[in-house]
């Protein structure tokens, strides 16, 4: 379970996140939406302790993330925007191993995790492929695999559909549905809700660093358009 309690984050005195409190149970599929600059990306970076709060607390499974960053980062996996800039190795197999290697696991366990993570995103058998040869959709899925290799219970994806054509988007969505069905919690950050409303359990919308909508997808759509979020059929 992830808990944000009165979280405040400032950049040079400007509040990007302004007193957000949220509780995210295990296994929940949450969509975090809001216009550009509303504080979404800043907020999720607190979930695994990449940023330090200016006020408030972040708890992962009841433990403050600043006390246990490794636990937070293995519990909450993260795939950022611009996947190209988060790969560390030249090949698919090398990259997906990076997280487990950092945990000091033995080679058998690393192999097992790499194979599982790649198969979960449909990149099995591609270990020796060079990352430069991957398509945009494959890169996004590899970024997800890199996070999954840590065997997290929550997975955060920041604007995962940017630049993907519709077949690539569908393939990614299908993988996300499978992960959710297997019990992984998903937190998808987006300014465009159209592809996610049918699957999400909950929609949280930020504006100017504050939560302005927190509802089921059905109830949320009414209010969302006024915050500049794209919603199907509106």
């Amino acid at each position: 379970m992830l808990e944000l309690d009165g979280l405040i984050h400032e950049y040079d005195g400007a509040r990007a996140v302004d007193g957000v409190s949220l509780t995210i149970p295990d296994g929940e599929f949450l969509v975090l939406c809001g216009p550009n600059g509303s504080g979404k990306s800043t907020l999720v970076r607190h979930l695994n302790g990449l940023l330090e709060p200016d006020a408030g607390r972040v708890l992962v499974d009841g433990v403050d993330v600043s006390d246990a960053p490794v636990a937070a980062r293995t519990t909450v996996g993260m795939a950022f925007q611009e996947p190209r800039d988060q790969f560390v190795a030249a090949t698919v197999g090398g990259d997906v191993r990076f997280g487990p290697e950092n945990l000091g696991l033995d080679h058998e366990e690393i192999d097992r995790r790499a194979a599982n993570a790649l198969s979960a995103v449909g990149l099995d058998g591609r270990e020796d492929d060079r990352i430069e040869t991957l398509s945009g959709g494959e890169r996004e899925r590899l970024a997800v695999a890199g996070a999954l290799a840590m065997e997290p219970s929550h997975l955060v994806l920041d604007e995962p559909f940017t630049g993907l054509d519709s077949p690539a988007r569908e393939r990614l969505l299908a993988r996300l549905r499978d992960l959710h069905a297997d019990g992984t919690g998903l937190i998808v950050v987006t300014h465009d809700l159209r592809y996610l409303l049918d699957d999400a359990d909950r929609v949280v919308c930020l504006a100017d660093g504050e939560v302005v909508v927190d509802a089921s997808p059905g109830d949320a759509t009414e209010k969302l358009t006024e915050y500049g979020v794209r919603v199907p059929g509106r």
Binding site: D61, V70, A71, T74, T75, L103
Partner: peptide, 11 residues
């Protein structure tokens, strides 16, 4: 969580 995280020395 399946891994012992205490031994990981973060950079």
């Amino acid at each position: 969580m399946s891994t012992a995280t205490d031994s990981v020395d973060l950079v």
